[in-house]
Design a protein around this nucleic acid. Structure first.
Lengths: 345, 345
DNA sequence: CTGAAAGCGCTTACAG
DNA sequence: CTGAAAGCGCTTACAG
């Protein structure tokens, strides 16, 4: 292989065909202005030389962008992996490419990642914010030009005037309330809220929904029923014993998410409780594993892949319609009932 | 908001500071040639105007690329999600950005995705090929210039001369052999190989390792011990009964991967077998859930996130050293022993 | 239907 | 230490 062989450009094709660059450019974009014979010749030459379109150059000239940045707090989390798959699918279908960024729940890294991606001039940004991040972190680095879609989490702080963004999220409160109400309807009174980081917006909202339902049923919730964990299967498993300390012991738990719920179900066995037999559990998300849990998990279905597609379309629509009013889309909660809440004593 | 306000460029900063574009450009790259006062003034002006560097323009001029394309067969698969997180982490640390693509196991989509990403002139490509894809699919679209790293799967067909690429993969054969040998050492004789698509390269290799170990132990493997499934928890669960049809019934199974193994463990309960108590199971991958399974799963640890980092570094090294000999890196198998193979009868 | 020229936002020799 | 000019690979009016 020769060292750094020059890239084939429009010029090479034009010269070989004895036409101008403009003509080749028109061929590329299937303009009807070009004579069929010319088109033929040009296309054959492009194939022959192995020409590859340089979209970056075209974008620069046209002052457009064909990339959208996707920054998530944790790509390796199955929920966001599904979401990313949906985003990429919808973007690709529209001819856009996904610039991936991972903040790992660090506001500092999120700032760096966004800064780096901004230099690639994305047509828009889809951001699932790191837990501790605030608007002020974003405003400096994103600026008012680039369409921003915030997904899944409310941000801390107030956005300053002129910093507009769209929002796509889940109805966390209604979801947790529905799950709690199902358990109440099944006769449970001692119901814990299990898992999640209490300071995260989604956990706060889900706890609020739970507390609403408990208050409506006139049940006082002791502090021991509110158990905090990392939102992972690992911690959901590890902290199961915390449910059964002194005092009124729960017979059911509304879990922060499916990962925590699946972990808890294993942990319950260690504590001498059979999930779905003498202890009821609900989840949140409906990840694929939820349906094949043991027992299958009653949960709130959120269809992360579809949310990804939706987010992509929202941000592209915003990009092509700058004047459009800011939107806040909240997906209604959808309860999917399975065996984990039908106790078989 | 005004409609499409012009982007701030080097020119704007230069004009405001009464210096040339060249000077501003030097400031941007922290050149020592610029006087400290000038630098100060320029930097202040950039902050004031909210200047954002246009890396695409710079890359075009410099004829370099700051993007690497990552194309995986399934982003939503936790194994590849972890891998992607590792790739992105290492690329970001080196100042590169990740262009994400998802082939969804379709050779056709893979071709489209690669074609689209190639137009963004990536510095390199990391590809975990779709199952059915062949070299001929890639050669036309990738060409000989762009460094390619194939991850995880052998491709079908022969690469033609001049189409060079690096490879990073796991020692599937040794891993499955080690798992099988552990079960043999525990006294099992009826050992099944459970799960995976028989035609995929990784499944073929893992089966070969299993058969090697069985042959060395002079055990004949009947066809009923080789069970094919999709490589998912769902199918691993669904097909458990296939292990217990007529004839010599296995007391242990070497599973294609962890997902299948975790699914199988649930399925075994349905079949009246207690995994880790009267039936032994091994996995492959060591995904996070493996450690908290019930029982915790003996498996082959492959550390997908570290593989991602490694893949990123390999492809960048190749990009900066075009002449370098082609590399094939195979990660040795690492057996992690847990309770699922220590039967407690 | 095709060509010559200008320009997208940068960097890079080359002068001074 | 700073400036004027050319050029990366495209597209876009504008002529013809």
């Amino acid at each position: 292989m020769a060292d750094t062989p020059r890239r084939i450009t429009l010029n090479d094709i034009a010269r070989a065909c004895n036409v101008s660059r403009a003509t080749v450019s028109l061929v590329l974009r299937s303009s009807p202005l070009v004579h069929a014979d010319t088109r033929e010749r040009v296309e054959a030459e492009m194939r022959r030389q192995g020409y590859v379109y340089n979209r970056a150059a075209a974008n620069l000239r046209q002052r457009v962008s064909s990339a959208v940045a996707l920054v998530v707090n944790d790509v390796s989390n199955p929920y966001f992996a599904e979401f990313a798959a949906g985003v990429d699918e919808a973007l690709a279908a529209k001819g856009y490419v996904t610039l991936l960024g991972n903040s790992n729940e660090s506001a500092e890294r999120q700032r760096q990642v966004l800064g780096s991606l901004m230099e690639h001039n994305p047509a828009g940004i889809i951001l699932s914010p790191a837990e501790s991040s605030e608007f002020s972190d974003l405003e400096r680095v994103i600026g008012p030009q680039t369409p921003l879609l915030v997904f899944n989490r409310e941000m801390a702080g107030k956005a300053s005037k002129g910093f507009a963004f769209d929002f796509l999220g889940l109805d966390n409160r209604a979801g947790a309330r529905a799950a709690t109400e199902l358990l109440l309807a099944r006769g449970h009174r001692q119901i814990a809220f299990y898992g999640g980081h209490a300071q995260s917006s989604s956990c706060r909202e889900r706890r609020a929904g739970y507390q609403e339902a408990m208050a409506a049923a006139r049940i006082k919730v002791p502090a021991t029923w509110m158990i905090e964990t990392a939102p992972t299967r690992l911690e959901g498993n590890a902290k199961a014993a915390a449910l059964f300390v002194a005092g009124a012991k729960p017979t059911a738990a509304v879990c922060y998410n499916d990962a925590v719920a699946l972990g808890l179900m294993l942990g319950l066995l260690r504590e001498g409780r059979q999930p779905g037999v003498d202890f009821a559990v609900t989840g949140f998300d409906d990840i694929p594993e939820a349906a094949v849990g043991m027992p299958p998990l009653t949960t709130i279905s959120t269809d992360p892949r579809e949310r990804g597609r939706q987010a992509a379309l929202m941000v592209l629509e915003r990009a092509s319609t700058p004047g459009m009013a800011r939107r806040k889309v909240v997906i209604p909660a959808q309860l999917t009932q399975r065996d984990s809440t039908d106790l078989q004593r």
